[in-house]
Amino acid sequence: MNLPKNINIIAKNVLQNEAQAILKLIDYLDESFVGCVEAILALKGRVVVTGIGKSANIAAKIVATLNSTGTPALFMHAADAIHGDLGMIQNEDFVICISKSGNTPEIKVLVPLLKRKGAKLAALVSNVDSYLAQNSDFVLNATIDREACPNNLAPTTSTTAHLALGDALAVCLLECRNFSSRDFASLHPGGSLGKKLYLKVEDLYHLHGAPAVSETANLKEIIIEISSKRLGATAVLQENTNELSGIITDGDLRRMLTKFDLNEIPQITAKDIMTASPLTVDTDTYAAEALAIMQQKNITQLIVTKSGKFEGFVHLHDLLKEGLV
């Protein structure tokens, strides 16, 4: 097989073709699109998305996007629909039928059956003069000039356009519902994405000890506390209180040796070598935000406080274990 020498040019042409097609969709947004969004927002039933061939693949992805952004949706393969799956459609549902031509035999069989069910029907098509478009309540216009395929046959640009318009629909619904990041997190509890949206410092800091010494602690006490808790640092608290005064890290101990003479070391207290007013995070802070602070300041731990009182530490290793890095 002889490979063409202009592979990058071919790829560039494909991407340009599809990018231009998506940009043209902006001009096709009309009252029918708005009406479709409004109808779904008022819906008592579910959104059912259907298609055949490559359109079925796009339908399945749009269903996943709708479900993950607060719009209950089901996927129904158009071929399976006319062989029994049509039973999932209720009269309070809303059906989105995806088809490039809008004239495939399966679609022509399916549309009258859907109409008989009493469900509202939206056509996501690249041919607004098609049978599907003419027999739908709403038309989502995804017209393209041609496919990226050199033979203008393989669904490429058309499926990209359908997918993009589906995303636009989902995001419109999301914003109209004021669907927040917390709502999103409740539907995505697994994996690093979910953890970034719901995991908080309060879920992590109690997993290890909370190293702390008083302002008057001597050098031996400081070293023992840092070494025993194995976090590379200790908080410094006001005498007999939980009020934070500062922090001492391994680095502070090393820098101490350059600041004090050897004969002064036995008299050193925590207050002499601590860093006052250290960076802190509240227990209610999201773990991802704590990570961002560590990365920005190039540090490996943060003191955790609650209502201004010392609670413990959150360490970079805690975030690594949770897969946030």
Rank of each mutant, 00 (worst) to 15 (best):
69 T>S: 13
102 G>Y: 03
71 T>A: 04
95 V>G: 03
49 V>K: 10
85 D>R: 00
57 N>Q: 12
58 I>E: 14
33 F>K: 13
93 D>Y: 07
87 G>H: 11
38 E>I: 06
39 A>W: 01
40 I>V: 15
79 A>C: 13
66 L>N: 06
71 T>V: 11
35 G>F: 10
85 D>C: 09
72 P>V: 09
103 N>S: 13
89 I>A: 04
65 T>N: 08
56 A>C: 10
81 A>P: 11
84 G>M: 13
50 T>Q: 06
100 K>L: 08
101 S>E: 01
90 Q>M: 14
82 I>S: 10
88 M>N: 06
80 D>L: 13
73 A>H: 08
43 L>A: 14
34 V>H: 11
48 V>A: 08
44 K>P: 00
42 A>I: 03
45 G>F: 05
95 V>H: 04
104 T>H: 02
37 V>F: 02
48 V>F: 06
39 A>E: 12
64 A>I: 07
73 A>W: 03
50 T>H: 08
49 V>M: 11
43 L>T: 09
95 V>W: 01
70 G>V: 07
42 A>F: 02
58 I>L: 02
71 T>E: 00
65 T>Q: 07
97 C>A: 15
94 F>C: 06
88 M>R: 10
49 V>L: 08
103 N>R: 10
100 K>I: 01
55 S>H: 05
57 N>E: 11
98 I>R: 04
33 F>C: 12
39 A>Y: 04
85 D>T: 06
76 M>R: 00
78 A>M: 11
38 E>M: 12
45 G>N: 12
104 T>V: 04
44 K>W: 02
88 M>D: 04
79 A>S: 14
34 V>Y: 13
62 I>W: 03
68 S>K: 14
95 V>E: 03
91 N>Y: 10
101 S>L: 05
73 A>K: 13
66 L>D: 02
56 A>V: 02
53 G>L: 05
97 C>H: 06
61 K>A: 07
96 I>M: 12
63 V>G: 02
76 M>D: 12
52 I>Y: 05
37 V>D: 05
57 N>G: 05
93 D>L: 10
40 I>Q: 01
35 G>N: 14
91 N>P: 00
89 I>K: 04
39 A>L: 04
59 A>F: 05
59 A>E: 01
54 K>H: 06
